[in-house]
Write a protein that binds this DNA or RNA. Structure first.
Length: 677
DNA sequence: GAGCACTGC
């Protein structure tokens, strides 16, 4: 428990030059955004170059205005020319976004700005949702959606202008699109018909990286519209960022008007829940006669209804305080925030290609993230940001976060690259090239999964199965599970299971899960392991008509389970297109376990001693995660979905398997593993 | 006997 901060503690902060934030007078009408004065220059730069880079801070209007500028300019140019070629080509302008909500909401806004409905001239395309028509010329879409389209046509011929927005975020999908778009650019330049223009839009960083990548592409700076933000650092290094945040919170609370909301960035659910409790406790204890506060937690795996609370306005005499993960950094914009408290840390998953281990740990943020967090205080008017780290610490932070492509397993990305006809992944033009070891590990995994085969030196081609596997929006291991269950006659079951494995946990994970709730869950337990238990929950959910009531009683996260239903539908359609054998095995669940073993054979662990298991692949000593239904049981051989290191190395989502299944599925692999025993 | 950030197809 943290003590209430003494009120005489001076604020241990140091003012810093906030010149990174331009002081601008905000103008509400979109016609008067600063970007409009640059319209001509923008149009010229795009059409006079194959590729160009635009830099601009949040709020400069680049995402909403630029696609429209380009469309209108093109229309004007071709007004008097009956251009048959342009009629035959679709000539779409697309603008990619890393997030679904962004793609949808921007499309809707741009459509309304030209007094149209979304889906006419302006539309969007995201997974499970699309609003486009024959009239559509400007298409906002998720980067992942464009990547899917690239699998069907790597030269992306229906687009004449491709805008990669938010490039500084360096998502896996955007990074892959860089390589694809660069190749398409060259191809279409050579073929001389239907030329392509590429526009990369980013916040102000990595300029040289982007420009150099596209052969010294010209760079244009766009004026931002952010309000000024005063940034303060602590004077001394803080060992406990939660305590420091609390002290700062109450100092702000005592010294500023109550209508000024405060946003605190912390790293995870536990930390956030306990901090919320502490704040409430300090207010309720009444020792200091503090003004009232509404404290709200915010993280992704929270019931949607609870998330919505942060948007509600609080009465004038009550302070709003939000304690958030980095979901509040980009994904959710909370109204009324004037002060940001930045703990300087973030929880991230990293992947070590040497060991194949995933690590979930709290790390320091990058400077870019620090500015992004600070920016959340200046959305509506000038604000302040308090950093729980010194200016020297800030200077030592990496300038940008490590791109996702450099810290994930490359099996999925590798399969996609090969599926687009690039036979040597090492020659793919990555914006940031992953470690050669990482690429080798991915190729090895895909080879074992029989998705690819080596032809000669460093080149690979897809097998028939590999071509099918690339069609699924899944980890290749799970795609292999689907193909295996098609052969074994349990594809219906595996579709359900794989869909659940594609979403976050379907169990409610609030910190007040008590024994009674655990008892509720036990009735779903299958002795063979977690996968069949999950399947059981899914089937019972359907049998109970997917009702809210059933989910409430059984402490099931309905949002995630409904998402799994949507995914199942999509995967099933792909199975039909691929003419797989869609059959149910009834209750012959050993077939499902067998199919799991065929796909997850690289994730096998055998009982070692006491409560330890040893993985067959890399001989890591691991433990069964306490959330598993097999926790405490000691089956001799299991497959698992995930190996992750938190406080210890844990395997999660586990199923008991038979050794014969493994030997059958991949004799070469297990012969070598078993001989080294 | 733990306690999982975020996003996407």
């Amino acid at each position: 428990m943290v003590k209430a901060p003494p009120d005489h503690t001076p604020m241990a902060v140091d003012s810093q030059d906030s010149s990174s934030f331009q002081s601008m007078t905000p103008i509400p009408s979109p016609n008067q955004l600063p970007i409009h004065s640059m319209r001509k220059k923008i149009i010229q730069t795009v059409f006079n170059n194959d590729c160009c880079i635009f830099l601009g801070e949040t709020g400069c209007g680049k995402t909403t205005q630029i696609p429209r500028f380009l469309y209108e300019a093109r229309e004007k140019k071709f007004k008097n020319i009956l251009n048959k070629k342009s009629q035959r080509n679709k000539n779409l302008i697309c603008c990619t976004q890393p997030r679904r909500v962004a793609a949808i909401s921007v499309a809707e806004r741009v459509a309304s700005e030209i007094n149209q409905k979304c889906g006419q001239l302006v539309g969007y395309s995201v997974r499970f949702d699309e609003s486009v028509s024959r009239q559509t010329k400007i298409k906002y879409m998720t980067d992942g959606m464009l990547l899917r389209e690239a699998l069907l046509d790597p030269n992306l011929r229906q687009y004449s202008i491709i805008i990669l927005d938010e490039a500084h975020e360096r998502t896996l999908h955007t990074d892959l699109l860089f390589g694809i778009v660069k190749q398409a650019l060259e191809y279409r330049k050579k073929s001389k018909k239907n030329p392509l223009h590429v526009l990369v839009m980013s916040a102000t960083m990595n300029v040289d990286l982007f420009s150099n990548y596209f052969n010294q592409a010209p760079v244009l700076y766009l004026q931002g519209r952010q309000y000024p933000i005063d940034v303060f650092h602590v004077q001394d290094i803080q060992t406990d960022y939660i305590h420091a945040s609390l002290v700062t919170l109450f100092q702000i609370h005592r010294s500023t008007p109550l209508n000024e909301g405060i946003l605190i960035f912390l790293t995870g659910q536990d930390e956030i829940d306990s901090t919320c409790k502490t704040i409430k406790h300090i207010i309720a204890s009444g020792t200091e006669s503090l003004e009232p506060i509404v404290v709200l937690p915010l993280y992704a795996n929270m019931a949607t209804v609870k998330q919505m609370l942060v948007f509600k306005q609080t009465p004038m005499n009550i302070r709003k305080v939000i304690v958030s993960t980095n979901i509040g950094e980009t994904s959710i914009t909370i109204p009324g925030i004037r002060h940001v408290i930045d703990c300087g840390h973030v929880k991230t998953k990293t992947f070590n290609p040497q060991t194949g281990l995933e690590l979930l740990q709290v790390q320091k943020i990058s400077q870019a993230q620090a500015w992004q967090r600070a920016g959340r205080a200046g959305r509506e008017c000038p604000g302040t940001c308090y950093r729980m780290y010194t200016e020297e610490e800030f200077d030592q932070l990496p300038s940008t976060p490590i791109p996702e492509l450099l810290r994930c397993n490359l099996a999925t990305a590798g399969l996609q690259i090969l599926a687009m006809g690039i036979t040597n992944i090492s020659t793919f033009d990555f914006l940031s090239k992953p470690d050669e070891k990482s690429i080798t590990a991915a190729l090895r995994e895909l080879t074992y999964l029989r998705a690819i085969k080596a032809s000669n030196d460093n080149t690979y081609e897809l097998t028939d199965d590999g071509r099918k596997m690339a069609c699924f929006p899944l980890d290749p291991k799970l795609s292999r599970c689907l193909l295996a269950s098609s052969d074994l006659g349990c594809l219906e079951e595996m579709l359900k299971l794989v869909s659940i494995m594609s979403v976050d946990t379907i169990f409610l994970t609030s910190s007040n899960i008590n024994e009674k709730m655990k008892m509720q869950r036990q009735k779903f337990t299958m002795n063979e392991g977690d996968h069949l238990t999950l399947l059981n929950v899914y089937k019972t959910f359907i049998a109970n008509k997917k009702t809210k009531e059933w989910c409430q009683i059984n402490k099931i996260n309905r949002r995630n389970l409904l998402r799994a239903c949507a995914i199942r539908k999509q995967l099933r359609r792909i199975c039909i297109e691929l003419q797989l054998n869609i059959k149910s095995c009834g209750t012959k669940y050993s077939l499902v376990r067998q199919a799991l073993a065929y796909g997850l054979f690289m994730n096998v662990a055998e009982y070692f001693k006491e409560n330890d298991y040893r993985t067959i692949n890399d001989r890591h000593i691991v433990k069964i995660h306490p959330s598993s239904v097999l926790f405490g049981a000691k089956p001799s051989l299991v497959v698992f979905t995930e190996l992750i290191q938190t406080t210890k190395r844990f395997i999660r989502d586990i199923t008991v398997v038979e050794p014969e299944w493994l030997l059958e599925s991949n004799p070469d692999y297990f012969k070598t593993r078993l001989s080294s025993k």
